[in-house]
Amino acid sequence: MKAPSISIVMPVYNSSRYLSESIDSILSQTFSDFELIIIDDGSTDGSREIITTNYKDSRIRLIKNEHNFIQSLNIGMTQSKGKYIARMDADDIMLPERLQMQYHFMEENPDIDISGTWMQVFGDMDGIWKNTTASDEIEVQAILHSPLYHPTVILKRSIITQFPLVNDTNQVYNEEYIYAEDYQLWTELMKRGYRLTNLPHVLLRYRKSEGQISRQKQTEMQNTTLRIQTEYLEYIMDKIAKLDEDYYNMLDHSITLCNKGKVHFIDLQKIVYIIASRVIPGSSVHQ
């Protein structure tokens, strides 16, 4: 059987309230050459029954896993067969042309390894969320925050084979960075030389609600985010020093002041961000 062009990976955990709306938006895509891998992450609210009872589409593959969100993601990634992998969350909504536009973009831009999009936020919050689209600016933007919106992402499947196997599952997402595992993955991939970008189009409706993990686990997510930013800042500072050694003393002094508590970490981030925007080729200051 011919492998699909795209594998959509969607973990599901107690998502019965919005699950049908999410699946319907996938099955209504203008692009049809895909498989939908749904990983039941130990749901107890009837989510699994909604899938098995209401959906008979042969493109859907349902996998059961014990409750472990990171490993459910990794299982879905490992089990994918497509040339590309698209991420999706069980309470979000794909706009009809999402897969079509992302597939053609990736095919026409083989130098790009991972691509996100802009998205419309709805529910507890309304608005259009945008990230920068230039790869070099994304590398700098990641100093301050995650440069891609996770449920909008499509990436080359060949990337996941670069991660170690544990129990026959590629460890693409790292359990040590739970609640910000995507941010850590983007920074790790940039360190390895992969190129990231964003399409300047709204292709997903992202639901903000009180029940989301990121709202319930704010403190842990903030601590993990700080760890990611600290590690990535070290990488960027080293890169700056190699590109222009004149900045070495300035960066070294800034780190010393931060360690002594005379400069806040967020101020150190801003200093490095401004310097990186001027030194790293192709980037520019982009607040």
Rank of each mutant, 00 (worst) to 15 (best):
K2A: 07
S5C: 11
S7M: 07
I8W: 02
L19S: 04
S20C: 10
I26R: 04
L27Y: 07
L27P: 04
S28I: 04
S32K: 15
D33S: 12
L36E: 03
I37V: 15
I38D: 05
I39Q: 02
D40V: 06
G42P: 03
G42T: 05
R48F: 11
T52N: 10
N54M: 08
Y55N: 02
K56W: 04
D57K: 08
S58F: 12
I60Q: 09
I63L: 14
H67I: 04
N68F: 08
N68P: 01
I70R: 10
I75Q: 07
M77C: 14
Y84S: 03
I85S: 07
Q100G: 04
F105Q: 08
W118Q: 09
V121Q: 15
G127F: 13
G127T: 13
G127R: 13
I128W: 06
I128G: 08
W129Q: 14
T132Y: 12
S135G: 06
D136Q: 11
V140W: 01
L148H: 06
T152A: 01
V153G: 04
I154K: 02
K156C: 01
K156G: 04
R157S: 09
L165Y: 11
V166S: 13
N167I: 07
N167A: 13
N174Y: 05
N174G: 02
I178M: 06
Y183W: 12
M190I: 06
Y194M: 02
T197A: 08
R205M: 15
K208L: 06
K208G: 01
S214D: 08
M221C: 04
M221N: 05
L226M: 13
I228F: 05
Q229F: 00
Q229N: 04
E234M: 06
I240R: 03
A241F: 08
A241P: 00
D244H: 07
D244Q: 09
D246F: 10
H253V: 12
N259C: 08
F265A: 12
Q269E: 14
V272S: 01
I275R: 05
I275C: 07
